[in-house]
Amino acid sequence: MRNIALKLMYNGTAYHGWQVQKNAVSVCGTLEKALTEITGERVHLTGCGRTDAGVHAEAYVANFRTASRIPLERLPFAINTHTPEDIAVGEAMEVAEDFNAIGSCLKKEYTYRIYNSRVKNPFYVNRAYFYPKRLDEAYLNRAAHMFVGTHDFAAVRSVGTQTKTTVRTIYWCDVSRSGELLELRVCANGFLYNMVRAITGTVLYAAEGKFRPEDIPAILESGDRTAAGPTVPPGGLYLTRLWYEDERLNG
Rank of each mutant, 00 (worst) to 15 (best):
N3D: 13
A5D: 04
A5M: 05
K7S: 09
L8C: 02
G17S: 05
Q21W: 11
A24E: 12
V25S: 08
V27C: 13
T30K: 15
K33W: 00
H44N: 10
H44G: 03
L45I: 14
L45V: 13
G47H: 06
C48H: 05
G49W: 05
D52L: 11
H56S: 02
A59H: 12
A59M: 10
A62H: 02
F64I: 03
A67I: 00
P71T: 00
E73I: 11
E73T: 08
L75Q: 09
F77C: 13
A78G: 10
T83L: 13
E85N: 14
M93S: 07
M93H: 00
V95A: 01
V95G: 02
A96C: 05
A101V: 02
A101I: 01
A101R: 03
I102P: 00
L106I: 14
L106G: 03
E109I: 14
T111H: 08
T111W: 07
Y112W: 08
Y115A: 04
S117Q: 01
K120C: 05
P122E: 04
F123P: 00
Y129F: 14
P132T: 14
K133L: 01
N141M: 02
R142I: 00
R142N: 04
H145G: 08
M146H: 06
D152H: 08
A154P: 00
V159E: 13
V159W: 12
T161F: 02
T165K: 13
V167Q: 15
T169W: 06
W172G: 10
W172E: 11
R177I: 06
R185L: 01
A188Q: 09
G190P: 00
F191L: 11
Y193F: 09
T200A: 15
G201R: 09
T202L: 10
P213M: 15
E214A: 10
D215E: 13
I216G: 04
E221I: 06
S222P: 01
G223D: 10
G223M: 09
T226D: 07
G229I: 13
V232L: 14
V232S: 10
L237W: 09
L239F: 08
R241M: 07
Y244Q: 05
E245H: 09
L249T: 09
G251N: 07
